[in-house]
């Protein structure tokens, strides 16, 4: 089967994605890629997992195919299915198959959200067999060396239904992503939203304060992504207090009392 080159070109990352390394993660990821070991990224939401994947794909000069998993994501959604086109049945590759054929990087975001039966195709692809059986085509694809698989999940969600099985997790090389240290985070916010150092530092201080509340009512503190949102609003001439209200406070919680507390943090800083 021929690779749809046009569709594949869309997944090339043309511009250099901004990413500040926190440690050795890039080296480890490259080593994993060279040794054909799939990657498992874990960490709270908005701390840079997806950005890291884009950067990695750019550095390796491979297309990146990202699939955001949801609870109705089935094996067919990943592998592909027959569609009826003008009375003809036409096979359409799913994103995973496309990635294998094209030697791209396939990134399954929030893997635990996907239906359990998807593991059937992920497991043989994630160990040293590196094969993808396409039942309906009667085909067994062997992944080329350029192909790589990466998945992410957030261990902070405390649902027993959404835990990765040992048989799955032990196929991966795992890396934990945490919020970057304050200085680094400020730099990220600065570059991403093009705001002044002062604003970036203030936002990072706010994030630090909200993260202290993690066990006192908040499920998670403000992520780097939220800070960037807030910074973008500030950049767009919205007053910092209003920007944080919309981007941070309301995004974090529905509890009015807690929101008031976060509002107090915001108004102390801005």
């Amino acid at each position: 089967m021929k690779v749809d080159t046009e569709r594949f070109a869309e997944h090339r990352i043309k511009e250099e994605p901004f990413y500040l390394a926190q440690g050795q993660e890039m080296r480890i990821a490259r080593a994993a890629y060279e040794n054909q070991i799939p990657l498992l990224l874990k960490g709270p939401t908005g701390c840079g997992k997806t950005r890291f994947m884009r950067r990695l794909a750019w550095e390796l000069n491979r297309p990146l195919i990202t699939v955001s998993c949801h609870d109705d994501l089935s094996t067919s959604d990943l592998v592909g299915r027959y569609l009826l086109k003008g009375g003809e049945a036409v096979w359409m590759d799913g994103p995973l198959t496309t990635a294998v054929r094209a030697g791209a990087i396939c990134y399954l975001d929030e893997i635990v959200e996907a239906r359990k039966d998807t593991m059937v195709v992920i497991h043989p692809l994630a160990d040293d067999r590196r094969e993808l059986p396409i039942e309906k085509l009667g085909e067994l694809l062997i992944a080329p060396p350029e192909f790589a698989l990466a998945v992410s999940y957030n261990p902070g969600y405390q649902s027993v239904l959404k835990d990765l099985k040992q048989s799955t997790r032990q196929r991966f090389l795992a890396m934990e992503f945490l919020y970057p240290p304050a200085e680094l985070e400020a730099e990220i916010v600065m570059v991403e939203a093009k705001v002044s150092k002062k604003i970036a530092e203030d936002l990072v201080r706010l994030a630090g304060m909200t993260r202290e509340l993690k066990d006192a009512g908040l499920q998670e503190g403000a992520s780097t992504r939220l800070l960037i949102h807030a910074a973008l609003l500030i950049k767009g001439n919205i007053s910092p207090r209003q920007a944080c209200q919309a981007a941070v406070t309301e995004a974090l919680t529905d509890d009015h009392e807690l929101a008031a507390s976060i509002g107090d943090m915001v108004s102390a800083i801005f």
């Binding site: 304060m209 909200t210 202290e212 006192a216 009512g217 009392e257 507390s261 943090m265 102390a268």
Partner: peptide
Amino acid sequence: ESRLLPYARSILG
């Protein structure tokens, strides 16, 4: 109290 206690905690850590 209920409003400023989390605030205070977030500062003091």
